[in-house]
Design a binder for these strands. Sequence first.
DNA 1: CCCAGCACGC
DNA 2: GACGTACGTGCTGGGT
Length: 577
Amino acid sequence: MSGLSDFCFDTETNSLDPLNTQLVSIAFSWEKGSGTMLWLPPEKDRAIKLLAHLRPVLENEKIRKTGQNLKFDIQVLAGYGISVRGPLFDTMLAHYLLEPDMRHNMDLLSSQYLGYEPVHIEELIGERGPRQKTMREVEKERVREYAVEDTDVTWQLMKLFEPMLIKHDLHTLAAGIEMPLIRVLAAMERDGVLLDESVLKKYAVTLREGIIRLEQEIYTFAGHEFNISSPKQLGDILFVRLRLDDNARLTKTKQYRTDEEVLQRLSGRHPIVEKVLEYRGLKKLLSTYVEALPQLVNPVTGRIHTTYNQAVASTGRLSSTNPNLQNIPVRDSEGREIRKAFIPEQGKIFLSADYSQIELRLMAHLSGDSAMISDFLSGQDIHAATASKIFGVPVADVTREMRARAKTANFGIIYGISAFGLSERLTIGRKEAKELIDGYFSSYPGVKAYMDESIRRARELGYVTTMFGRRRYLPDIHSRNQVVRGNAERNAINAPLQGSAADIIKIAMVSIASRLEREMPGAKMILQVHDELIFEVDEGRVKKLEALVREEMKGAAELSVPLEVDTGTGYNWLEAH
DNA sequence: CCCAGCACGC
DNA sequence: GACGTACGTGCTGGGT
């Protein structure tokens, strides 16, 4: 393999959890139709010795590595002391850039692009369930056949996708952002974050007490016991037995709607409603976070290791699963308690850094609206500035209410809201909402023009793009169904904003990771929450880290408005945020 | 096992 | 008259 500049590899393992798995084999291909496999013994020390022969290749900075979902293979090899270096080409991510709304698993790509059906993993290890075997238990020659075929297919997909990326102007985004990010995410996932289980244990007791108390109160109001967590049963209690609203709205399955919005409106009519809202909140905290998080602590590392999915969100954002660390509560005080359980290890501290108003700043930049650009340049509170314009009063005279409405309008604009949507959100009349929107567009005429232009381009090209060329196809933009079309039009407005923000933070993550490696190897980037990054660092070095992070986040893109970054430090996630 | 309803984040 | 703000993940209930 010496002299190679480019090859494809794939690991076979005993488990899909890369942090706690055993390597069974590693296969290679660098020529269509052929490949080879190294079979590894179950004893880890022996496997490591064998793998050492491959180190000069796998760790070679000059040799590009191709694979399907390389983050997994990189993590597995990290567990065997191999640090995969050099450029990467991930066929899953390549296809994600080419067709963000489609699925990207290898079997599908193979049949779709190569017209070839590879051997299915179930043919080796059996169907999912208690009788499923591990790769280790499969005969070596059968594994070889399967593994080599996979690398061959992946190699061929790379040969196909790379020119396609170039043709669609996606190659810079791929080679400059998405591919380098793989290694960054692999390290973040492997590092994980420490959870103070005692915080959650104590909180669980409080929550359970509250839930039991509320259950009794609700049963008393209802006249009998029922399952409060069943929207069907709850709907019957509220709207049949208690008849709180004879014009209650129904879901598409003809059940009574009992979501928060409905309940809020009903809350003055009967004391049961408030109790149900409170019950729902506590139940959510208990089941989704307080009880679930401790079960996801890795017994070996003692930390929580989320998985970032780099190929699911059609706008270019990351998502997080097992657990989802991107939806940890922050808004109300009960929920915020959960954040206290995320802590740095002894002697370290968290640094949190988040982009301030990045999507609205991108709206200012992409639209070129001079009023919005000046509002950002002046450094004043953007929502107050918007309120001052749409309500025609000096900034000093903007009331809390006016600012709140302007803030809702600003968010609505990013999402392509309608007058109807805004009126619902602000609980004001349609006419008033329309006036508000008209006022908004006459204050920021460039924003209106930009929104129209985004829709026009989507119609003309069939897709919209971010600042860095990421595409989102919007075939529904031509639909005769106005609901479907309206959805596509909102996507035409939102996708370039949300997607450019995703591009920018990814650029920042790649550059921060590379600087940390050289300049502050002790500091770790551990979490990403769309516009926010969390770091764990020695207490004494947090100031230096803050400066580095600010510099790289602000410098990730050159906009016609400044990219502001807010930072905080603390001994748990709540304190740092 | 899958879908609906709901709720958490940005 | 109907229409209802983008992107996600996960839990529970309820039907199969």
